[in-house]
């Protein structure tokens, strides 16, 4: 709705203010050009999607393994977290060209950058999630005779799920941005390099078309995580409904 209003205002401004389409094209023109160039756009979106998904999967795996390690050996946390925090403050603008310089124009540097920007949020989400486990549940499990591993699997892991999905939703948007940034710094194909080329050819309409594609991509991934959460945490959804459906007593 608000997006629609914005587009209408933009369309009117671009058509009636006398601004040149090479500066600010109307959305209708962007859409038209996007349709005309859809093959090129799709062709360039595929590597971006691939880099996003592979990079994100790598970072998820690493974050999960490390979160467990940190949960079992608390001292590690104090030792490692400063390093990770520093890794988050590195400016992407400076790092992206360096990584490309070191690892070439292929998939590797993109995966690395996506992993770099998403790893820490996921790690923090997981570690915080484990800590959110109700103290009483842990105590009760130990009194039942459960060891640390059982407590982790039965209580700490499920307790972390809401945090995990909150982290997932944030990181997935970072992931797309990270991939595009990496391509911007140098790539054979990808939405990032497509935007760069379009800009250099004075085609803001094509830049915006690529932006539209990346926005759609982000939205789809975001929606997928929300869907995944609904499937993985049925009690969240059902729990909010009153218990009226159950048989009476």
């Amino acid at each position: 709705m608000s997006v629609g209003l914005l587009l209408v205002a933009w369309e009117l401004y671009a058509n009636y203010s006398g601004i040149k389409p090479t500066i600010l094209p109307a959305p209708s023109r962007v859409f038209e050009q996007a349709t005309l160039n859809r093959e090129a756009l799709i062709d360039n979106a595929v590597p971006t999607i691939r880099a996003t998904l592979i990079g994100f999967a790598c970072s998820l795996g690493a974050a999960f393994a490390l979160s467990m390690l940190v949960d079992f050996f608390q001292p590690l946390r104090r030792a490692l977290f400063p390093v990770f925090i520093v890794s988050q403050t590195l400016p992407l603008v400076a790092i992206a060209p360096l990584v490309v310089l070191w690892f070439g124009f292929g998939l590797t540097p993109k995966i690395m950058l996506v992993a770099l920007v998403t790893f820490f949020p996921m790690l923090v989400a997981l570690v915080q999630g484990y800590e959110a486990t109700e103290v009483e549940i842990g105590q009760m499990l130990r009194a039942m005779g459960a060891g640390r591993w059982r407590v982790f699997v039965l209580a700490r892991l499920p307790s972390a799920l809401p945090y995990f999905f909150a982290g997932l939703r944030i990181s997935i948007t970072y992931a797309v941005v990270g991939a595009i940034f990496a391509e911007y710094a140098g790539a054979a194909k990808g939405l990032g390099i497509y935007m760069l080329n379009a800009k250099n050819n004075f085609r803001p309409d094509l830049v915006l078309a690529a932006v539209g594609v990346s926005a759609a991509l982000t939205l789809i991934l975001f929606g997928l995580t929300a869907l995944l959460q609904r499937l993985a945490m049925p009690w969240e959804r059902i729990g909010r409904q009153p218990a009226g459906k159950g048989p009476g007593r």
Binding site: E136, I137, Q139, M144, G145, L154, L161, W235
Partner: peptide, 16 residues
């Protein structure tokens, strides 16, 4: 020796 069945102060039911 696990002699006790313990019910903590809050019910400690697992929401999931």
């Amino acid at each position: 020796g696990r002699h006790f069945a313990f019910m903590p102060q809050r019910d400690a039911l697992m929401p999931w």
